[in-house]
Structure formats: structure tokens, C-alpha cells
Amino acid sequence: MLALYLREVKLGLRAGTGALTGVLFFLAVVAVMPFGVGPDLNLLSRIGPAVLWISALLASLLGLERLFQADREDGTLDLLVMADARHMLAFTVFVKCLAHWTAGVLPLVAVAPLLGLFMNVEPAGLAAATLTLLAGTPAITFIGAVGAALVVALPRGGLLVSVLVLPLTIPVLIFGVAASRGAVAEPDPFLQPFLILCALTLFFSVIGPAAAALALRHVD
């Protein structure tokens, strides 16, 4: 399984499609936001964490449809399904998701504090937004895996994945933004939404791979 993880990360980085596309998209969305909203620093710092979260959500949906499609195109998927007796397919999917997250989404989390500065978010808010992204974005990848598994046989499934997955990611977005706001806006709590966010990630880390494995087993 470690071999699978390392290979997937290597592929994600080496093919040049994963990490950089997501980061550039993230950068583009956050960078144009102040131009659209206007130079009101108070407003920017208030909506900053939400903008970071929305952009990260959309950026991490990019490239999700390739999660299993590339494996199906070169025949790898057949062998992964057949190896079920040795490596449970749901666990294989889990490891693939983790690798996808490491190569494609972790860089987003890493640049989030920098981009938060563009939005005039104060240091505590930056830390909170980064922490919530770190805890919450894996859930998006696990949910996305289900969508990716469902459309694996379709040649242009990218948009369909986003449409399928987006409604399910709304709770993650709500609690992610609530926690990052809670860290700076005084009466709002930070810990409760943050813990629910962690719970969502744990919940989807089980449900997502299991559902995706079920879909992959019935591809054709």
C-alpha cells in the first residue's frame, strides 16, 4: 500500500497536472477577488476566510475526475479491482485519495496563508483558515472519489463530477468557514465547528472509499 501511495504521489507531481494546476487556479481566484470586491480592507478581511475556503473547494475539485479515469485507460484499474482479496478495494481507494490529496490539495493548504494576506486576513484568522483547510479538504477528496468512480467510464466526466459532488461538500464548507470565522469574530466559537469538521472528514474517509469501491466494481 505504501508502494501505491508513493507511486500515486510521484505520478501526481511528475505529470505536472495535479499540484500546479490546483495552486494556480487557487491563486487566480483569490487574487482577482479584491479587484472585484473593491479595496475595502474591513470587508476583505471579513470575507477572507470564506473566499479562501470557496476557492480551495473549487480548486480541489479540479482534476478529481482523473482519479480513476487514468487507471481505467491504461488497464491498471482492472488489476486493482482483481487484487481485492489481497488489498481490500475500499482501502486501495482510500490510499489513492490520500495520495491525490497529498499531491494536489496539500500544496493549496500550504499557500493558503500567503493568499490570505492578499485578503487582509489577520494572523489568527490565517492560522485558523489554514488549520481548517488542513482538516477539512480531505473530506472533499473522499466525497469526490465517489463522483470520480461513478463517472469513470464517461469520456468527459469532469463537470459531472463537480455537479455530483458539490452539494455533498456544502456541510464541509459551512463548518470550515464557521470555524475559521470563530477564531477571529469574538462571540462565535472555534472549537465546536472545528470538531464537527474533523468528524466530517473521518466520516467521509470511511463512507467515500467504500461507496467508490462499490461503484468501481460495477464499472462494466
Binding site: L4, L79, A85
Partner: peptide, 28 residues
């Protein structure tokens, strides 16, 4: 679990070297 399946597709990643591909399948 007892079968090797050699289909029409080769199940190798174009971006990796030949040896990396085989080493992965050996480990997996």
C-alpha cells in the same frame, strides 16, 4: 486473487520508468 490478467491494455504508467512500473506491481 489467484489470477494474473494480461488484457489488451498493459497497465503501466507512461510517466514512470519501466523498472518503477514493475517494482510497483511487484510490491502491490
Amino acid at each position: 486473487g489467484a489470477c494474473h490478467y494480461l488484457g489488451h491494455l498493459n497497465a503501466m504508467k507512461a510517466a514512470l520508468t519501466v523498472e518503477e512500473n514493475l517494482a510497483f506491481w511487484r510490491a502491490f
